[in-house]
C-alpha cells in the first residue's frame, strides 16, 4: 500500500495577477517506512511541493493528484489533511504572541483526536509528554507557557517543529528545509528527532538544499527537483554526487 501518491502534479501561483507555473508534472510515491529526500536548486519548486501537500492557500493545482492512503487530498482543507495524518514542518514557523505553545498543542491534539473519534488526551499527560520531548530536543520546557514561537531563535523554532512532529505522531512528515539556518549541534538534535520519528508505518519527505542533512538522516531515495519536475532519482549516493558536482550537470 502506498502512503503518499503524487501523480502528474501541476501547480500555479499568482504572480502580478497572472498565473505562473511552478510545478510542471511531478510524480512521487512514498511507501510506509520510507524516507524520501527531495533536493534541488533554489526556485525549483521544493517549498511549493511542501506547501501544496499541506494545502496552503495561494497555490492552484491545475492538474494531477495527491493521495494519502489512497484518498485524494486536493479538496481537503489544511486541517482535514492534518487530521488524516499529514504533518508539515515549516521552513519559517510563525510567531504568535498571546497563544501559548501549550494551548496550541492541546488544541491540535484535541482536533486530531476528535477527527479520529478518539477521546481527547488529558492535559496533564500532554504536558508531561511535551516536557519530556522538549528536554530531549534541548528546548527549555518553560517555553510551553510562552507564546507560539514567540522570541524563539531560528534554531529553537526548528526544534519546536520537530517537538510537534514527535508529539502529534502523523503518518507522513513533510520537512521543508528544516536544516536551513541550523548550526551543527542543532542539526544533530533535529536529525535525532526525525530518526526517532521513523517507523515502518510512517513516511518522511525530506526537502533540503544541502546534502549534509542526509549524513544524519539517511534516506531510502533521493530525488532531484528542477524546474518543476523530478529529473533524477536514486539512492543516497545521488546526494553525494550532487554535493560533488552541483546541480548544473543535471539541468
Amino acid at each position: 500500500m502506498t502512503l503518499l501518491q503524487v501523480e502528474g502534479l501541476k501547480v500555479d501561483i499568482n504572480a502580478d495577477d497572472a498565473p505562473m507555473p511552478i510545478l510542471k508534472g511531478l510524480d512521487l510515491e512514498v511507501k510506509p517506512g520510507e524516507v524520501h529526500a527531495i533536493m534541488g536548486p533554489n526556485g525549483s519548486g521544493k517549498s511549493t511541493l511542501a506547501n501544496v501537500l499541506a494545502g496552503r492557500p495561494g497555490y492552484r493545482v491545475t492538474q494531477g493528484s495527491i493521495r494519502l492512503d489512497g484518498d485524494s487530498l486536493l479538496d481537503l482543507a489544511p486541517e482535514e489533511r492534518a487530521q488524516r495524518g499529514l504533518f508539515l514542518a515549516f521552513q519559517y514557523p510563525v510567531e504568535i504572541p498571546g497563544v501559548s505553545n501549550m494551548e496550541f498543542l492541546k488544541a491540535s491534539l484535541d482536533s486530531l483526536a476528535k477527527a479520529r473519534g478518539e477521546q481527547q488526551p488529558a492535559a496533564a499527560a500532554v504536558i508531561g509528554e511535551a516536557r519530556e520531548l522538549a528536554n530531549s530536543l534541548d528546548l527549555d520546557p518553560s517555553f510551553l507557557k510562552r507564546g507560539v514561537n514567540e522570541g524563539f531563535s531560528g534554531g529553537e523554532k526548528k526544534r519546536n517543529e520537530i517537538m510537534q512532529l514527535l508529539l502529534l505522531k502523523p503518518k507522513l512528515a513533510v520537512l521543508d528545509e528544516t536544516d536551513s539556518g541550523l548550526d551543527i549541534d542543532a542539526l544533530q538534535t533535529v536529525s535525532e528527532g526525525v530518526n526517532r520519528f521513523r517507523r515502518e508505518d510512517r513516511g518522511v519527505v525530506l526537502i533540503t538544499h544541502y546534502q549534509r542533512l542526509l549524513e544524519h538522516i539517511v534516506p531510502d531515495y533521493v530525488h532531484v527537483l528542477a524546474e518543476g519536475r523530478i529529473i533524477q532519482s536514486g539512492d543516497k549516493d545521488l546526494a553525494l554526487e550532487l554535493e560533488a558536482k552541483g546541480y548544473a550537470w543535471l539541468t
Binding site: E79, A82, F87, F90, I96, G98, F104, S108
Partner: peptide, 19 residues
C-alpha cells in the same frame, strides 16, 4: 500554521483572536 496542525478554521480563529 494552525490549520496545518489539524485545528479547524473556526477554532483557529477563536484561538488566534484570544492570543
Amino acid at each position: 500554521y494552525f490549520t496545518s496542525r489539524g485545528i479547524a478554521s473556526p477554532e483557529a480563529t477563536a484561538l488566534l483572536s484570544r492570543g
